[in-house]
Every structure is written in C-alpha cells, then in structure tokens.
C-alpha cells in the first residue's frame, strides 16, 4: 500500500468521523427538540382535558339556571307562555293609512313602523309581550 493511498484513507476516515459527529450532534439536537415538543403536546392535551371538564362543570344546567335567574331574571318557561305566531289572531286588512297618520303612529310608538302587519305581530310576540316572569 502506497503512502498516498494510506494518506487518502486517513483523510477519508477523518472526514467520515467529522461527518458522523456532525450528523450525530444534529440528530441529538432534533431528538431533544422532539422530546420537548412531545412534552408540550402532552401538557397541552392535559390542559385541554382540564378545560373541557371545567367548561362542562360551569355549564351544568342547574348552574346556568341559577345564573340566568340571578343575573337576567329568567325563570323556567311555563306552558301558557308557549304559542305559535301562526295561531295569533290576524289583524283585519284595511285600506293603507295616509302618510300623515303613519308618521303620527310612528311618533307615538304604538306600532313597529315599516313592517307588514304579520311581521309586526311576530316581532311583538318575540319581544315577549305575552310572557310572564
């Protein structure tokens, strides 16, 4: 084996060793990063699980009912509060009001202006005019 061949072998071996070291170092780095990410993922999952439990706890029907009653004054619905708008008596169809009369009515606030009769009655129903607290 010539001295030149031996020299190239030595250079090759040194280069390979350096490359191996670099790759190994890179892999170790990535592994550490991956392990950290895994820990984060698991920790996040744990937190999500806890948050889901807390959300379920905070939205218990009895809790919502209590908070509704306390903060909004809402109480469970009763049968006589339930109606269908289609069962409400329809208003008699009359000739359209003159513009001046309509403006007066709007000022007095006794109708919801600009809406057809049926829609108006539906809105007044939705605002709970027939409700009971």
């Amino acid at each position: 084996m010539s001295a030149r061949t031996t020299f190239f072998w030595c250079i090759g071996a040194a280069a390979m060793a350096a490359g191996l070291f670099a790759v190994g170092d890179h892999v170790r780095d990535r592994k550490d990063r991956l392990a950290a990410l895994n820990r984060e993922v698991l920790a996040e999952r744990e937190r999500i699980q806890v948050l889901r439990s807390e959300l379920a706890f905070l939205t218990q029907p009895q809790t919502l009912e209590f908070q509704n009653a306390r903060a909004l004054g809402l109480v469970p619905i009763e049968a006589d509060q339930l109606h269908r708008s289609s069962f409400l008596p329809s208003r008699s169809v009359s000739a359209p009001e003159p513009p001046r009369a309509r403006a007066r009515a709007r000022r007095d606030g006794d109708t919801i202006s600009g809406l057809p009769t049926e829609q108006s009655s539906r809105l007044s129903f939705a605002f709970g005019t027939g409700g009971r607290q």
Partner: peptide, 30 residues
C-alpha cells in the same frame, strides 16, 4: 419514531362518556 409515539399518546387512560348532544358526562384528567 418519537413523533408518532406522541401522536398516539394520551394523557389519560380512559375514554369520555357524553350525552346525545356531546355534553361531557364523564372524563378523566391527570
């Protein structure tokens, strides 16, 4: 590979019980 392992890992060992609308009835935390 660690990435695949993490994807299949769960922080808890038991599944959830939910109602018909998906509301949580039983779950596990660590």
């Amino acid at each position: 590979p660690p990435a695949e392992k993490a994807a299949s890992e769960h922080p808890v060992k038991r599944g959830d019980i939910v109602d018909r609308n998906g509301r949580l009835l039983a779950t596990s935390i660590v």
